[in-house]
Design a binder for these strands. Structure first.
Lengths: 190, 190
DNA sequence: AACAGGTATTTTACTCGTAAAACATGTACG
DNA sequence: CGTACATGTTTTACGAGTAAAATACCTGTT
């Protein structure tokens, strides 16, 4: 059942960058179209943003994992190793949890696996015996350093559907939104 | 095939004035900064897009769920009900799986719960006894119809950090990217 | 008619993340 | 000092998703 489209939307215009012909119709657009047909009273504006973010994230993660899987790493594990690599110094489990936006329990589990695999080393704090300090082993560091370029190259390929300026603009807009979300979402718990 | 030309993203729009507490500088920007310090040879361009998409998705989902939780629904469950509502007709489990981008097994489990709660009804196909047809009960339909505006209003509030044109532009760019990803990711399995 | 093979759905076994409790230690204050 | 509370980390119990096997059914071929 095809819908008579071309209906001008009330607000939040859908076309901002004079749609370059062709790439018409991602799945989110189709969903939005369905909603408008069944519930024309709804303002579907937010769906076009949030739905697409979620869908992009799902697809990207699926694709993103491909190079990592070759190294036997999951994305969360790689994030953890990456946090150790990019900060350049030791981190405690708690800091790692904050750095990777995951729960302490999850970090504990990952650390167990990664230490068993010899990618990460643990050292107890001498002053405060509750805390541990984690650092990459040489093997861990080599793994991350070898994987990073491969990973970034793959991501570049995945994003190549969008031209350079498009990517920059997308990054800027997402950064703006993200800044607002991170700043205010803690307070927005209705 | 890689053109390692310096990407002009630099500090990406958000001029980090460093004021903590204010909405300056999202966390992804900080991560990128760290990477550039430790590995200046890497092209961190993709991270600014993909990292932000992932982080936005994580934050949005956490926030998004708030109104749904009041109704005792998870996001995937709501998506399933929404698919039934917006298509306007019965769907088979397989169609629901495709429509909500989840596995058949997951759909089976959700359907079990939702039928038990009386939100969804099952009807066996008379021609082909393998397939089932699912539809919303009156209660299910009322629930979705009541929840949708609330949910959209909440999403509108969550996105309000970005002005109208910004949202439209973001939606357009994401749509372009998503169209490419959906069209090509099936084929991109390296 | 019977069988090979395909399709729709469910079941099974397992992994992973989480919330909450448990544990181990530090700190402040009477 | 010692007790109460705070903090860092791990353990436990459990819920949810997945891949692959199992189940049930259809369809075309001989």
């Amino acid at each position: 059942m095809t819908a008579p489209q071309g209906r001008p939307v009330t607000d939040s215009g859908t076309s901002a960058t004079g749609a370059p012909g062709g790439a018409r119709g991602d799945t989110v657009a189709a969903v939005v179209r369905q909603w408008r047909e069944v519930r024309p009273d709804l303002d579907t504006g937010p769906m076009e943003v949030i739905g697409r973010i979620n869908r992009c994230a799902a697809l990207l993660q699926q694709a993103e994992d491909a190079p990592l899987r070759r190294a036997g790493l999951s994305r969360p594990e790689f994030d953890l190793l990456g946090a150790l690599r990019r900060t350049g110094h030791e981190l405690t489990p708690g800091e790692l949890a904050r750095e990777t936006f995951s729960s302490g329990a999850a970090v504990t589990k990952r650390l167990k696996q990664l230490t068993e695999r010899g990618l990460v080393e643990r050292r107890g704090d001498t002053r405060d015996r509750r805390v541990a300090h984690l650092r990459l082993t040489d093997a861990g560091r080599d793994l991350v350093d070898g994987l990073m370029p491969e990973q970034l190259a793959y991501e570049t390929a995945v994003l190549s559907g969008l031209d350079g300026p498009g990517q920059a603009e997308l990054a800027a807009l997402l950064g703006e939104l993200l800044g607002q979300l991170e700043g205010r979402l803690g307070a927005l718990r209705a």
